[in-house]
């Protein structure tokens, strides 16, 4: 235990106040979002739980605020705290799933491409090239557009979350694939891999048991950075109105709704979810920066 406490990465962490704060913020936000059904006072998806009479109440500390609605309500009378917790929950579910799918797909393809080389490498990397020629937002928009064209209106509505996750995952896998491939190209020339090859071990075993544990560092950095990107991408798509609809709002949707009050006085409807989203993403990115420093000692100050 003392070994762990004194290991380089933990020591570095204890001496980086930004990393500590980021970790606390991230844990708080993710924890409260996960616990939303138990700690929120209302279910923002259930129209019957809120009352139009409570509409447009300001936060507690402004005159007219009510103790029940700490951060105020929107025009429908929806409690902002509950909306944000549920919204963050949805944003995180989508972001994490998309990132996980992109990681599995990208690492699998990237490692195989790097390890086997040849035509497999050529094909995977050419597909990655095409993917790079179409930026993430564009890919996601396109996939959403195709889903609209192919699926019936109703099916599309009910599958929106799935479509969003697919769209985001497909626009992020290239990062993983390129990083995994580059790392494998370095590792596979190392002597421990040659030793395993000489023994006649199966390529799948060599990749999973020998190479993968050695390239986890850079992959972990990409996972953090891409989780942030996935959350931003979801928010952006929802903001553009092609993500989640107003009756099941994610953070991006809440911001889009809030935009309508930009010019009137109800600032909290816009700025509270915005601040929450930015805090979440900044915290994740700070952790990503910290991990980058841990895994690349050259960047250490």
């Amino acid at each position: 235990m003392t070994n762990f406490w004194n290991s380089d990465s933990v020591w570095l962490f204890r001496h980086r106040p930004t990393a500590i704060i980021a970790a606390i913020v991230a844990v708080l936000i993710i924890g409260s979002a996960a616990a939303a059904p138990w700690i929120a006072i209302a279910n923002p998806y259930d129209l019957s739980t809120f009352n139009l009479m409570d509409g447009l109440l300001p936060p507690l500390w402004q005159s007219g605020g009510q103790a029940q609605f700490v951060l105020g309500t929107d025009d429908q009378g929806r409690d902002m705290v509950s909306a944000i917790l549920y919204g963050a929950r949805l944003s995180l579910i989508i972001g994490l799933s998309a990132m996980a799918i992109a990681a599995v797909l990208g690492v699998g393809l990237g490692m195989s491409a790097g390890y086997f080389g040849g035509w497999l490498d050529t094909i995977v990397m050419r597909i990655a090239d095409i993917q790079l020629a179409l930026p993430a937002i564009l890919t996601a928009l396109l996939i959403d557009g195709i889903a609209r064209g192919v699926l019936e209106q109703e099916t599309h509505q009910s599958l929106r979350v799935v479509v969003l996750i697919t769209a985001i995952a497909l626009s992020l896998w290239v990062n993983f694939a390129r990083t995994a491939r580059a790392s494998v190209l370095v590792e596979r020339n190392k002597e421990y891999v040659q030793a395993a090859e000489m023994m006649g071990q199966h390529p799948v075993r060599i990749m999973s048991r020998h190479i993968l544990p050695n390239i986890l560092g850079p992959l972990l950095v990409i996972m953090t950075v891409d989780l942030a990107s996935a959350i931003l991408l979801e928010a952006t798509l929802s903001f553009l109105g092609i993500g989640l609809p107003a009756d099941s709002p994610s953070l991006g949707t809440l911001i889009r709704i809030g935009m309508q009050f930009l010019f009137s006085g109800e600032w909290w409807i816009l700025w509270v979810p915005t601040l929450f989203l930015v805090m979440l993403v900044v915290a994740i990115n700070l952790l990503g920066d910290f991990l980058r420093e841990v895994f690349n000692p050259r960047l250490r100050r």
Partner: peptide, 27 residues
């Protein structure tokens, strides 16, 4: 053409140049 389970994989063993990369750091 030397199959993965060919006995010569055991008969010929190697000691590599770089002791820092010839052992898997994670094992």
């Amino acid at each position: 053409t030397r199959s993965r389970n060919h006995p010569s994989r055991r008969w010929v063993q190697m000691v590599f140049q770089d002791p820092y990369s010839s052992l898997n750091a994670r094992h």
